[in-house]
Amino acid sequence: MPFFVSGGSKTTLLWFALLYGLGMTSCEDQSVTIPEGALQEHTVDLSGQWHVVQVTLNGTDITTVYDFEQIRLTLNMDQLPTDFEIETGTAPFPVVENGQWYYNDPAYPTSISFTADNHQRSVDFAAPPISGDSSFKISFTLGCPDNVYTYTFNKQ
């Protein structure tokens, strides 16, 4: 005999059965089915061909003072970043040779690194990149640390 039934009360048993049933129903309602892979973090997708559409130096727009349109950047990915190709013409850019690239954090990157000819150069994203978006923005220095260049790339 269950310990909570005193005096063999049928009413008590009935209430218990009712509550138990409600409890079961409630548990079934709260269960969530998570699709396989739904919790996996995805690498931000910046693959594609990019060109420069805006340049600022210390916050001042200098897009028109130089032919920055010469710059073409191709980022290749195979799930993760792989290699890159860069054409700069005479325009300034932190790297001028093709090589490998990667993020500091594949899902939430704050910087992107280019490795070419055993040299590595990291540059910061000026804004968090959005996977599959049509533009991204990076900031870097070329000479003195006070001079910050920000390039906005659009997808071709």
């Binding site: 200098i62 003072v65 130089y66 300034p92 070329l142 000479g143 003195c144 006070d146 001079n147 260049y149």
Partner: peptide, 11 residues
């Protein structure tokens, strides 16, 4: 520019 070296873009 107040500071620069010759890796900077010189306007």
């Amino acid at each position: 520019l107040e500071t620069y070296d010759f890796n900077d873009l010189l306007i």
